[in-house]
Amino acid sequence: MSNDIAYPVFRTPDLTLAMSAARRLMDFGRREYSEVSVSAELRSVAEVRRVAYELPGAWFRGQEEFGEFDGVPFEDQPALVVGVQAPGLPTDPSAYEGRLPVECSLLDQPVGSIEDAFTAVTGPNIGEIRWASLCWPDAPEAGFGGESKHAEVTLLLNTRTRDLDEPANDHTVLVHIRSAIVSGRQTREPYAHWLAEQAGLTIIGPGQRL
């Protein structure tokens, strides 16, 4: 079993520039089977309704207290807790009490099918766009073989962390590679530098792991 590590390679308050950089890097490893997933944290009922109107195919899932539904059959749990598509969202505002923030997501979509619509409605909300099933090529001049399992690109919206827990006034592009720690050192970090350079980018901070 292996894990990934993601290095920031670009940061800007300009979403158009951030998206351009992310796509440039993603295109370097894109394959016909590559996919994109998006998600955002919505902190008010008004925002949930607004985004649901714009993205009717998205799924929404609210928060629950630890152990709140222990022993409760899945079919008897609130739709907002187990996950529901936009048309099935509760209309009663009281259904959202204790459920905010609500996570909105669209997973495993064709590349290019959802990114622009998602960024258009995200607004100030924290979110991410993650392109997966990429394939990074060999870098023989740098002494590294390619990889596919952890070949991903993430665009963080209004945050700088993969935990999506710290609001920011800018957007960050991350390049993902396999984590390989030897004697406390990431031995594949130079490969991340090489990948960034191929898209005209550069590592601007320490790697992030989940």
Rank of each mutant, 00 (worst) to 15 (best):
P8E: 01
R11K: 07
T16G: 15
F28W: 14
R30F: 04
R31G: 10
R31E: 05
S34G: 00
V36P: 06
S39Y: 01
A40K: 08
E47V: 07
E47G: 11
R49E: 11
R49L: 13
R50Y: 03
Y53L: 13
P56I: 00
A58P: 02
A58H: 05
A58D: 05
W59S: 06
Q63L: 11
G67A: 01
P73Y: 02
P73A: 04
F74V: 03
P78L: 00
P78Y: 00
A79V: 00
L80N: 02
G83Q: 07
V84T: 06
D92H: 10
A95D: 15
L100K: 01
P101W: 00
E103W: 05
C104S: 09
S105M: 09
L106P: 04
L107R: 00
T119Y: 05
T119F: 09
A120M: 01
G123Y: 00
P124H: 00
E128Q: 14
E141T: 10
G145S: 11
E147Y: 02
E152N: 13
L164R: 14
A168W: 12
D170A: 12
V175F: 14
I177M: 15
R178I: 13
G184S: 14
Q186Y: 06
A199C: 12
I204E: 03
Q208L: 10
R209H: 06
R209M: 09
